[in-house]
């Protein structure tokens, strides 16, 4: 029962591991280039899920926006009332990086399709082999 509690207390982390491995597997094992990019996306979002999980606080912590902020600047703010803002900041940056990588990967994909007229890695490799054979 204790082990069960232990596992449940971290279920978010176990889930991110599962997601990350789904993405990782797609990135290295799938032959289709689009599937690789889908895997890349899942892989990166899993890391973002991990970071956001580190930020959360149990016990009624609210979103990191100071409530009734206008005028109460001198009040002491209880840290336990707000979730940790730093991982959110980092992950905003990471999402941007993610979408940039995604755009670059898609651009390369279109270049490859124009050149080989297929998106399967093994077909591209066999085309390259026949080119070499000539």
């Amino acid at each position: 029962m204790e082990a069960m509690d232990y596992i449940i207390s971290k279920y978010n982390y176990w889930m991110y591991i599962i997601l990350m491995m789904i993405g990782f597997y797609a990135m290295i094992a799938k032959k289709n280039l689009v599937k690789k990019i889908v895997g890349m996306n899942i892989f990166q979002t899993a890391i973002i899920l991990f970071f956001i999980s580190t930020a959360s606080k149990k016990g009624g912590a609210s979103i990191p926006i100071i409530q009734n902020g206008h005028g109460s600047a001198t009040d002491i703010i209880n840290t336990a009332h707000y979730v940790n803002p730093l991982p959110h900041v980092l992950m905003l940056t990471a999402i941007v990086v993610m979408v940039s990588t995604f755009g670059v990967a898609i651009a390369l994909l279109l270049m490859l399709y124009k050149k080989y007229n297929t998106l399967e890695e093994d077909e591209i490799i066999s085309i390259l082999k026949t080119e070499n054979g000539k």
Binding site: Y13, T54, A55, S56, K57, K58, N84, L86
Partner: peptide, 20 residues
């Protein structure tokens, strides 16, 4: 540290200063 633990290092070292 367990998920959502308010006393984990991540919630106590740097970020309280931001919140306050």
């Amino acid at each position: 540290p367990g998920w959502g633990d308010p006393s984990s290092p991540a919630s106590t070292h740097v970020s309280p200063v931001y919140i306050q």
